[in-house]
């Protein structure tokens, strides 16, 4: 709209129009020159390789010797009938739901507590945020020791008559037979959720704290003047205003949890009966130990699609918001 108006206005002076147009093209050209290297790099090293992975996933390359003959969706069909992959899907679903729910709720609650203008706020903020600075591998090793049935917190818990198997527990809660596996909540995955939540809650806390600080004081004041109780102010004004933060936290946590590898690999491995296995671990083992390259590529593509389920609607909605 803006542009049209300018053109209309400049129609009176054809000289200026030509000049402006030329200036625009050189600007465009310059901009293109700046963007071009990154476009080329991303086209080759991201989208090119995604395409290559997709191509491999539909080939017969399941030995050390590359074999690019077309296999169609054979590898995908194999995976969805595979016990281990079915267990992976179950574990990813359970892990993602529990992990996101706890991180969102705990992060929000902690942020609200910290927002009460308490003394030593920055100290607490740093304490909660600190685990974020660690790598998932470190977290995994630490929690592997903490939750080991023969060491760790269990030595303490045993004194109170509590004896938990944590991540070595092979029980499936609320389980029922589905496909080849027992579908339900594997107890062992809860131990992994604890470790992941410990690491990532600080991040969601920081996001929510920033969100809380961005809410204008006038809104809260207005609600209070209207006679709303403090609880109602939070329920009706503040928490609804934090919605965009929640969406961001969910998107960020979802892509972490759907692709999780390092935490599981360091902490539990695939687990007995694959109770803590995830697609990332399966992909690594089947590709680099079993030399099933096509199967591994198929797992990678499936993981990409999972993340796309979360990311694409987000991108579309944010584009809509822009225009």
């Amino acid at each position: 709209m803006e542009l049209n108006r300018t053109e209309k206005g400049s129609a009176v002076l054809p000289e200026t129009k030509a000049k402006r147009n030329r200036k625009l093209t050189t600007d465009h050209l310059l901009a293109l020159c700046f963007i071009l290297p990154s476009i080329v790099l991303i086209a080759v090293f991201v989208y090119g390789f995604i395409g290559w992975t997709g191509y491999v996933s539909m080939s017969n390359w399941n030995t050390l010797v590359p074999d690019f003959s077309f296999a169609g969706l054979k590898n995908y069909a194999y995976l969805f009938q595979d016990y281990r992959f079915q267990a992976d899907l179950r574990n990813t679903l359970v892990f993602t739901v529990l992990f996101i729910a706890v991180v969102v709720l705990a992060g929000q609650a902690l942020a609200i507590f910290l927002d009460q203008k308490i003394r030593g706020e920055s100290l607490f903020r740093n304490i909660f945020f600190f685990p974020m600075a660690l790598s998932f591998v470190v977290t995994g090793v630490v929690w592997q020791w903490l939750l080991n049935p023969t060491t760790g917190v269990n030595l303490f818990l045993k004194k109170f008559g509590l004896d938990s198997m944590w991540y070595t527990n092979t029980d499936i809660l609320a389980g029922f037979k589905w496909g080849k596996i027992e579908f339900g909540i594997p107890v062992a995955i809860i131990a992994v959720v604890i470790a992941a939540v410990w690491q990532m809650t600080g991040f969601s806390l920081a996001m929510y704290l920033a969100g809380l600080r961005a809410i204008p004081e006038e809104l809260k004041e207005a609600a209070r003047i209207d006679g709303a109780s403090e609880f109602k102010v939070y329920r009706k004004v503040i928490i609804p205003l934090l919605r965009p933060i929640t969406v961001s936290v969910i998107i960020i946590m979802a892509h972490i949890s759907l692709k999780i590898f390092d935490l599981i690999y360091a902490m539990t491995g695939p687990g007995a009966n694959f109770v803590t296995d995830v697609p990332g671990v399966y992909m690594f083992e089947t590709t680099f130990r079993g030399n099933y390259y096509a199967n591994g590529a198929a797992i990678a593509i499936i993981m990409l699609l999972f993340v796309a389920i979360f990311i694409v609607p987000y991108l579309i909605s944010s584009r809509k918001g822009e225009s």
């Binding site: 399941n62 030995t63 016990y83 281990r84 695939p270 007995a272 009966n273 694959f274 083992e285 089947t286 130990r289 079993g290 030399n291 099933y292």
Partner: peptide
């Protein structure tokens, strides 16, 4: 190795 990977998986389930 491919066969071994599958046997290891079967053993892991069997245990």
């Amino acid at each position: 190795e491919g066969f071994l990977t599958k046997v290891n998986q079967a053993i892991n389930i069997f245990v």
